[in-house]
Each structure stands twice: as structure tokens, then as C-alpha cells.
């Protein structure tokens, strides 16, 4: 082999690897997303099953305890729903027991409810963890009538959040009208004690103005615990929990 040939060869390698580098062109994309649970022949991966087993045992021990019964399936929906009414009424009841009789209303953020439905019949402690997995705690705030209106306007703009039965109003053109608290019209200068999860009181869902409310009382009471205790109270009284729609928030055409 001549020197010239070797030189040409080396040059060609250099050229091909730098200037004429092969390109990757995307020729096609095939979409093959799949719901594996529809494949009846697919059995569980044993290694994963083994890994889960000890955790599952501990979880089941703590979570499978039946705490009560719902008469019917409860459903998450807007502006008013059976699930929302259950949550807000449970919070209201717990707050009332905690604070005496002076609660105007309870409010729960819609996104804080983490399951779409809970079936009727027996309900376990674990189900309440799924409904309310967050370690949110109960907070009392004293709001004047103007601030209450601002809060209700906010939740109305969000499509309606769960509120306790003590608060009723109508939605007209995406605005709240006819607000009544314990049957009385909202008064601008009056002070109302409300109860809500700390998540909202701390400015969650961009409710920053609530962080500036001076009269505030934090508690150690978990929202989830309020739900569980509310169910247990029914169970001890020998009755089922039966949340109903009562038109507390209605849409005016």
C-alpha cells in the first residue's frame, strides 16, 4: 500500500466521521398505550408482589377496619355533591363540638377530596385516607361579611366547593347571590367564625387574602380525623351516614 493510499484512507475516515455523519430521522411513531388490567392472561409479577407483601400486611391491619356505613354511594361533583356535603358537614360538626355553637359555616376545597366516589355500605378507615390523604388540620378564622363574600365569590368562580348546610346561596352568571348563613342574609360588618382546612387558610388555591386574617385559631385536629369521627358517631348511634343533596348551592338560570 502506498503512502498516498493510506493518507486518502485516513482523510476519508476523518471526513466521513465528521462531515458526513449519518443522521437519525424519525420515520414514524406508533401509539400503543395499553390498559394492562384488561389483559386477563397477564399475571402479577412475583418479585413485585413479594416486595409489597410486608407493607400490605401492615397497611391492611391499620386500614381495613370498618368504621361505619354509607346508605348510598357518595359522589364528588360541583357545585353541590353528596361527597362534598358529607365532608363539609363532618367538618362543621367537629368544629361545633370543639368550639361551642358559634360556627357560621365550614368549607372544604373541592380538589382536596381525592376520590371520585365512595360506594354505599361498609366504609373502612383506609377509605377516609383515600378521600383525604393530606395531613390538613382544622383552622378557625373570623371573617367580616365582606371577606365572607370574597371567599364565596372565589369558590363560586371555581365551580362551587363543599360548604356546610348552614350556608346557602345561588349561583347566577357565575356570581353568588342570596347568601344566607343559618337562614339570615349576609351582613357586611358582622363577624363570622368559619372553619376550614389549614391548606386554604394558608393561602392554598391562591386564597392569599386569608393569610392576612388576624383572628385565627389553629388546631391539631386533622380533617381526616373529623371525617372518621363523624362516621363513628353515626355508628355508635346505630345509624348509617346518609349525605343528601339539599340545594345549599344551586344554579339560578
Amino acid at each position: 500500500m502506498t503512502n498516498l493510499r493510506i493518507l486518502v484512507m485516513l482523510l476519508s475516515i476523518a471526513f466521513l466521521t465528521t462531515h458526513c455523519k449519518p443522521k437519525q430521522h424519525l420515520a414514524k411513531v406508533e401509539s400503543k398505550s395499553q390498559e394492562f388490567s384488561k389483559d386477563k392472561n397477564l399475571s402479577a409479577d412475583e418479585e413485585i408482589q413479594e416486595l409489597i407483601e410486608p407493607y400490605k400486611k401492615l397497611t391492611d391491619q391499620q386500614m381495613n377496619r370498618v368504621i361505619g356505613e354509607f346508605t348510598e354511594e357518595i359522589i364528588k361533583a360541583q357545585p353541590e355533591s353528596t361527597m362534598g356535603n358529607f365532608c363539609a358537614d363532618a367538618l362543621y360538626k367537629t368544629a361545633k363540638d370543639y368550639n361551642g355553637d358559634s360556627i357560621a359555616f365550614a368549607i372544604q376545597n373541592y380538589g382536596g377530596m381525592r376520590v371520585p366516589t365512595i360506594p354505599g355500605g361498609e366504609v373502612t378507615r383506609g377509605k377516609m385516607y383515600e378521600l383525604m390523604p393530606f395531613e390538613n388540620r382544622m383552622v378557625f378564622l373570623d371573617l367580616n361579611g365582606k371577606e365572607v363574600l370574597r371567599l364565596i365569590e372565589h369558590i363560586t368562580a371555581r365551580g362551587g366547593w363543599p360548604v356546610s348546610a348552614s350556608l346557602r346561596y345561588e349561583i347566577y352568571n357565575d356570581k353568588p347571590i342570596g347568601i344566607k348563613i343559618h337562614g339570615d342574609a349576609l351582613e357586611e360588618e358582622k363577624i363570622y367564625k368559619i372553619v376550614l382546612p389549614d391548606y386554604i387558610a394558608n393561602g392554598g388555591d391562591n386564597l392569599d387574602f386569608l393569610t392576612k386574617i388576624e383572628s385565627r385559631k389553629d388546631t391539631d385536629k386533622l380533617i381526616r380525623k373529623a371525617f372518621i369521627e363523624y362516621i363513628l358517631e353515626h355508628t355508635f348511634a346505630g345509624i348509617q351516614v346518609n349525605p343528601q343533596l339539599d340545594g345549599r348551592i344551586s344554579v339560578k338560570e
Binding site: P22, K23, H25, V29, E35
Partner: peptide
């Protein structure tokens, strides 16, 4: 619930 899956096919050439 679903495993997303997209298959990408690449063609390698110098054109």
C-alpha cells in the same frame, strides 16, 4: 391504570 407506550422508529442514513 394505563401504561403509556409510544414506539419511535428512526431511520439512520446520510441523506
Amino acid at each position: 391504570i394505563v401504561l403509556g407506550r409510544l414506539d419511535l422508529v428512526f431511520e439512520r442514513n446520510k441523506k
